[in-house]
Amino acid sequence: MNLRSIPLSAWIGIAGIAIAILCAIFAPVIAPFGERDVVGDIWLPAGGDFLLGTDNLGRDLLSRLIYGARTTIFVALAATVLSFSLGMILSFAAAVMGGFVDQLFSRFNDLMMAIPTLIFALVVLAVLPQHLWILILVMAVLDSTRVFRIGRAVALDVAVMEFVEAARLRGEGSLWIIFREILPNTLSPLLAEFGLRFAFSILFLSTLSFLGLGIQPPAADWGGMVKDNKDGIIFGISAALVPGAAIATLAICVNLVVDWLMKRTSSLKGGRGDA
């Protein structure tokens, strides 16, 4: 792969993601104050000791933003990885096995997708106790329906190619066919899909937190910070907009990379994009 062939927009996206991840990893080092420390008056304007001002309880907004990157990215990433693994395994199994298994999985998936994700999440979270791992699990299961659909379509596309038939005629087993014949050819579109799901997870988690059903206080997370500070808006205090902008920026960065990945995805016939 040629570094120079990566367009500027993708570089911006990569840089943005890198900064967010660095903040998440080194939060205690970078953040000037503690995550939960009340350090000043409420809703102090930006500047002075507090670069971005303070929040509704007088905590440093910048510090909470940096710690919030930790929670937001960790939960979104965990949910995406989980949903992706789940969706991929089930969809590839459906595509390769076909017949009854395929019908069963696909019909159930249709049913899951007939309910809007957010509504589904609201119903389920109303019942379940509020734990972080439950939140991640719910997000992952709901999102895996989308992954399943894409994964199955891509796998079926490739599975009917003659080189897969040729491998079957040779007597190759299912594992070889999935991992050596199908998977390498689906990598590019699936990578793009992973990015898309990650961006969606960030937005979805933030929405849930904003509605009070995601990450529970006092842990900092970007969606929850918007919720904490939303009452300030009427007084012209922009504290709620800062975490909102952080969510938007991260999502845009991920989407910029995804956009590039999608354009780069070479068709099966049109040469190898060396992934």
Partner: peptide
């Protein structure tokens, strides 16, 4: 059926397709 054949039976009959493009794994 294909599944009932031994590897040696499969080996003895090979196939060439119309579209060599799609008959070979591009990767």
């Amino acid at each position: 059926a294909l599944k009932g054949r031994t590897n040696d039976e499969l080996r003895r009959i090979q196939m060439i397709y119309q579209m060599a493009d799609t008959a070979m794994n591009p990767r």
